[in-house]
Design a protein around this nucleic acid. Structure first.
Length: 875
RNA sequence: GGAAGUUUAGCUCAGCCGGGAGAGCACCUGCCUUACAAGCAGGGGGUCAUAGGUUCGAUCCCUAUAACUUCCACCA
């Protein structure tokens, strides 16, 4: 039998243990009709991604749940995978091409895609390795990729079904356009921020008059596409101009003045320039008044040929020039500073241009309704449930989803156009011949689908849907989805409506939402701030277990948390404690094995107390884990491990271990091993590596912890009353310690205890423990403590009145003072109890147990008071 | 403008059904007590943001207020 090293050093075993788990196939989920399935879909990280703290927390939480369920005997599938991340990846590759001095257009679609796959092969695996470092116990045999064959097939099927029902359509509408990425985006992919800008006031001359109308704009360059000026119908200032024609300066176009309710007369000048092709509101106005739509910006954000003299200029350069030119014409009234909300590309942060463009859309309202209903009806539950409201907010206000992207890396839209008859053909299979006219001159739509279109299918596409594979039938719907609240609109919501639509079932029963991991100052970790902390560096320094623990302790579900290295250190210290406690048990446990149960052991009161505490902990941890209260579960566990087991029980076991009575020693060791084993099991989901490592040293234990049974609460071992009685011993020990400290008695100096007590038997049975833990030499029972003599410090506890003769250390005046304070405290307690009990309503209405408890407390304090008074008199 | 959250010890945060406020870190005192100084023992420190209400009883439930955070919408 090898011995445990004297210090906890995670580097010695974490990789080794992970390899062992992999080789043993413990992560692999094989359909087992005898077992109940438990399925978790890992949110697929981007192939371009690096593991960050957010992932680390998300993965840790999933792994805790998954390991817990696996140990409970479920057939657990934790499905891993990666996301092709269409835009993010293409963006990176394009950047790389730029460095190489080429462009994607130069390479052509085919070559570009070849490069992209190469990239995926090269970098896509990186994050997988990082997840392994963290201890993720997912089924790597089933590693999926959103663009693999299975998922791609599901994407086509989903698209086809929606298209068939008219829920996918193509149309020209205002969309969010990123001029840098040169693609359309969904509403969710636009992030707004308050940017400082200007409010420019321009004058547009009225045709056939000297009059001019003043408009205000934040985007002067869009005036090139103005096709009207709108005023409020009830606005008297402009009533005479409605129907008149204006001459658009610099352009010379004649545009009408229209009356529209949309205009707020109180804002700006009350007259609004209308650019239907570049503003969502103007677009609506344009439709109502049948205005022409003139697009003046090209895909790259420069002014297009419609811009006349400004054609070819970048939008901001054009803006500057237009303002200058209008100034020269004397048409600029004023320029104000103005901060307003500007949309930015979620990926590259470029300013978004609203542009009219022909794109593919998913009609949302028929999909949103059942998705809302499913949560209302509790088919899917959010934890914490307040996130259901966020989810409703999104779905209730949702607009049609723009799903086409002008990108190459992704799922190409499965629609073909016939060059001869113009037919638009959506198909599950590639189309070579036009079914309408028989032509073979067809071309596929150039665009790709939004990445989230495929992620939305993740819970079932990975299982083989639309085929009714055995996996799909067994593992779907999944049990819990774990993700951050920031992903609700992108992913959770879309999986919900997709799952319901395509499979007829909600994709998951529970959604466990967590918050963001922030930096020490509470700021979001981000690349631009450079405040991100690399989880791998933390793992390198402290080990994965410490990182995992630090990410779940003291965190309430759904709340953000701050990452501090101090917290990791605290976690590391805890694990070190476990390590050393285990080492202590094992170095004493020669020729002993972990007992299967406790039936062969004669249990001492201390044994029963720790077993009772273990049972309570098992129950609390199990319940908390079932409710996904990971922070509470970890907290209970750590308190039990450190306070109860290490600080108390191990110390309590020492008299038996060192006392020379082989039977007592065997009993204590049996309990130590029994409790330690259970503790390792309970702790395993949180700190899998170190617990598995220690488990390997346990004598007489075979197999691996990862697949051991999770401890079960056993009411026969609860020993509630005995445990409560034993708390009296603990209180007694603490009181003696406090007495010694209060007079500056050296801890190593043993003192004699005189006890006035009714619990002589209880104390006698636990005498050795009391002596050792309290630092006492002997115990003598007395009637009134007089034997202890003058120079004595006394203290009253629940089971005894303690007298400790401390000779010269005792300052009688200080002792009197201390007793007076104690007396005051006890008197307050009695008053408090009296106050409650004299309240007739309390006695009448409060639960009986509470009232009885209050009487009992009063009794106890009165007794204590008498003893203290008596002691004060005798001094 | 709408929504959600937060406000508890010096700091970071927990707190299940309403029934004597907790942890970690920091701080103070004393200890290398042969598992552990990444430790042990003892200790100090809180009007649970404010004001009302419900209740026998409120950190917890309700209402209002304030401050902060986040998300959404958005007036060109």
């Amino acid at each position: 039998m090898k011995e445990m090293q004297t210090t906890y050093d995670p580097k010695q075993f974490e990789d080794k243990i992970y390899r062992h788990w992999m080789e043993s196939g413990y992560f692999h989920a094989e359909i087992d009709p005898e077992k109940v399935p438990f399925t978790v879909m890992m949110p697929p990280p981007n192939i371009t991604g690096q593991l960050h703290m957010g992932h680390a927390m998300d993965e840790t939480m999933q792994d805790i749940v998954v390991r817990f369920k696996r140990m409970q005997g479920y057939c657990v599938l934790w499905q891993p995978g990666t996301d092709h991340a269409s835009l993010a990846t293409e963006h990176k590759i394009v950047e790389k091409l730029r460095e190489e001095g080429t462009t994607k257009e130069e390479l052509g679609r085919e070559e570009f895609l070849r490069r992209a796959y190469l990239w995926k092969e090269q970098y896509g695996g990186k994050i997988v390795g990082q997840l392994k470092k963290l201890g993720s116990s997912c089924d790597w045999d089933r590693l999926a990729f959103t663009m693999d064959e299975r998922c791609s097939r599901a994407v086509r099927e989903a698209f086809f079904r929606l298209y068939e029902k008219g829920l996918i359509y193509r149309g020209s509408r205002i969309i969010n356009w990123c001029p840098d990425c040169k693609t359309a985006l969904s509403d969710e992919e636009v992030a707004y921020s308050e940017d400082a800008g200007h409010f420019w006031y321009f004058q547009y001359p009225v045709e056939g008059s000297d009059e001019k109308i003043t408009i205000a704009t934040t985007r002067p360059e869009t005036m090139l596409g103005d096709t009207a000026v709108a005023v409020h119908p009830a606005d008297k200032r402009y009533a005479h101009l409605v129907g008149k024609t204006l001459i658009l300066p610099l352009v010379g176009r004649k545009i009408p003045v229209v009356a529209d309710e949309y205009v707020d007369p109180a804002f700006g000048t009350g007259a609004v320039k209308i650019t239907p092709a570049h503003d969502p509101n103007d677009f609506e106005v344009g439709l109502r008044h049948n205005l022409p739509m003139i697009r003046v910006l090209a895909d790259d954000g420069t002014v297009n040929e419609q811009g006349g003299a400004y054609a070819g200029l970048d939008r901001y350069e054009a803006r500057k020039r237009i303002v200058e030119d209008l100034k020269a014409l004397g048409l600029v009234v004023k320029i104000e500073n103005h901060t307003h909300n500007v949309g930015h590309c979620h990926r590259c942060n470029a300013t978004i241009e609203p542009i009219v463009s022909k794109q593919w859309f998913v009609k949302m309202s028929p999909l949103a309704k059942p998705a809302i209903e499913a949560v209302v009806k509790n088919k899917t539950k959010f934890t914490p449930d307040r996130f259901a409201k966020i989810y409703y907010n999104w779905l209730e206000n949702i607009r049609d989803w723009c799903i086409s992207r002008q990108l190459w890396w992704g799922h190409r839209i499965p629609v073909w156009y016939c060059d001869d008859c113009g037919a638009e053909l959506c198909s599950r299979e590639d189309v070579a011949v036009c079914p309408k006219c028989g032509s073979t001159h067809l071309h596929q739509d150039e665009d790709c689908l939004d990445t989230w279109f495929s992620s939305a299918l993740w819970p079932f596409s990975t299982l083989g849907w639309p085929e009714e594979t055995p996996e799909y039938k067994y593992f779907y719907p999944t049990d819990v989805l774990v993700t951050g609240y920031d992903i609700i609109p992108f992913w959770v919501m879309r999986m919900m409506f997709s799952g319901i639509r395509y499979t007829g079932k909600v994709p998951f029963r529970d959604v466990l939402i967590h918050g963001l991991v922030r930096d020490e100052q509470g700021r979001k970790m981000s690349k631009s701030l450079g405040n991100g902390i690399d989880p791998l560096e933390i793992i390198e320094k402290y080990g994965a277990d410490s990182l995992r623990l630090s990410l779940v302790t003291g965190v309430a579900p759904g709340n953000d948390t701050r990452f501090t290295e101090t917290k990791v250190e605290a976690s590391r210290n805890f694990i070190n404690k476990i390590w050393n406690a285990s080492r202590f048990v094992l170095m004493n446990a020669k020729d002993v094995e972990v007992p299967k149960d406790l039936s062969g052991i004669k249990l001492t009161p201390a044994d029963r107390w720790i077993i009772s505490r273990l049972m309570a902990t098992i129950r609390e941890v199990t319940l908390s884990l079932q409710k996904y209260d990971l922070g509470i579960a970890a907290d209970k566990l750590m308190t039990f491990a450190w306070d109860d087991f290490c600080d108390w029980y191990i110390e309590l076991s020492k008299p038996a271990l060192y006392g020379g009575d082989p039977e007592k020693k065997r009993g204590a060791l049996g309990v130590l091993l029994f409790v330690l084993t259970a503790l390792l099991k309970l702790l395993h989901p949180f700190a899998p590596f170190v617990t598995e490592e220690i488990y390997g040293y346990l004598p007489g234990v075979s197999g691996d912890l990862i697949v051991a049974d999770f401890p079960r609460y056993d009411s026969k071992l609860a020993y509630k009353n005995e445990a409560k009685t034993f708390e009296g011993i603990i209180e007694l020990i603490k009181a003696v310690r406090a007495i010694k400290v209060s007079v500056g008695c050296a801890p190593s100096k043993k003192v004699k205890l005189y006890l006035v007590t009714d619990a002589r038997r209880l104390i006698s049975v636990n005498k050795n423990c009391i002596l050792r833990l309290a630092g006492a030499s002997e115990i003598e029972f007395t009637e009134n403590g007089a034997e202890a003599g003058e120079k004595t410090v006394s203290k009253v506890t629940g089971i005894a009145h303690i007298f400790v003769p401390l000779g010269e250390l005792v300052d009688l005046e200080a002792e009197r003072e201390r007793l007076r304070k104690e007396l005051a405290r006890v008197t307050d307690e009695i008053a408090r109890a009296d106050g409650k009990l004299s309240n007739k309503n309390f006695v009448a209405k409060a639960p009986k147990k509470l009232v009885d408890d209050e009487y009992a407390k009063r009794e106890k304090y009165i007794e204590m008071k008498e003893k203290i008074e008596q002691q004060l008199r005798s001094l």
